[in-house]
Amino acid sequence: MLQVLLSGLTVGTIYGLVAMAFAIVFYVTKVINFATGQLLMVSILLVSGLVKLGLPDWLGIVTGLVAATVLGVATYFIAVRPVLRFDRFSFAWLVSTLGVAIVIQATFALIYGPASQPFPRGLHAIPVRLGPATLTVQEIVTLAVGLLAIVGWHLVRRYTLLGKLGKAISTDPEIASTVGANVTAFAVGAFAIGGFLAGLAGILVGPITYGNPYLGDTYGIFGFIALMIGGIQRPAAAMGGGLVLGVLSIAANTYIGAQASDWFPFVLVLLVLLLTPNGVFASGDQLRRLFRTRRAYQQGVNA
């Protein structure tokens, strides 16, 4: 049971980081960057390639994170800003960010070939026993990074001027810009943070899944499911969605069967969308409201 919980939280943190990457971009710009999964892939493959060339692991990791961040920003300037300048309410970014994803994937497939590349095992080779369960140091670091991401986001958003400006831009960019907020700078920052988080998720999952040009699709989809479960409006809620998805997927795998991990996430997201369309952790606590409404209805019937 403890092993299921810990393994689920570890996997869920990876999904959650990708979901946060989606959510932070959406929070500021109201755009979903469909190249987010590919940014995860970029960081993994760059680390694989640079370490293979003889560079130290740490330098490969730093380069991978920087590259994912820069590509995130580049996505904004290439695929988002031009279409939003043309029409602020356009949905053309749906196609343009998807186009960026395909180009990144094809470019890396051309450079690296289709075969998976080894990734340095690093801390994943060191097991830690926690009673009946075993985690690796890498997995413990993953959990710590997830916690740090939630706490960090909360502190920045709540207690810094930057966070408050971001909140204002998220609520109404036009009014925010009239009081001096640089909306473009915040959008760039959001895409940079999104790229960084996706790259970070790649570094953390790399020792388990290795590097492959086509990885972005898988993690992009699971990150998006986590986003839908947690709620798209709040980045910290997206991380919560990842954790729920991770734990329940591993539990389904263990207690229902290995095939359950294929269909269970989709059943879960369907249930969430039916019961709380804005996500489990969305503001307003819709689940509580749902039960309160039923109770009130029942009381009315009884009266």
Binding site: S7, S116, Y210, N212, L215, D217, I250, T254, A258, Q259
Partner: peptide, 22 residues
């Protein structure tokens, strides 16, 4: 015996922790 769906297209590995325990 257990059957596991894999990611032939993307190369992503599947989570094997639960299976190893079984």
């Amino acid at each position: 015996v257990e059957s596991i769906t894999e990611n032939w297209g993307s190369g992503a590995t599947v989570n094997l922790d639960a299976e190893i325990q079984k």
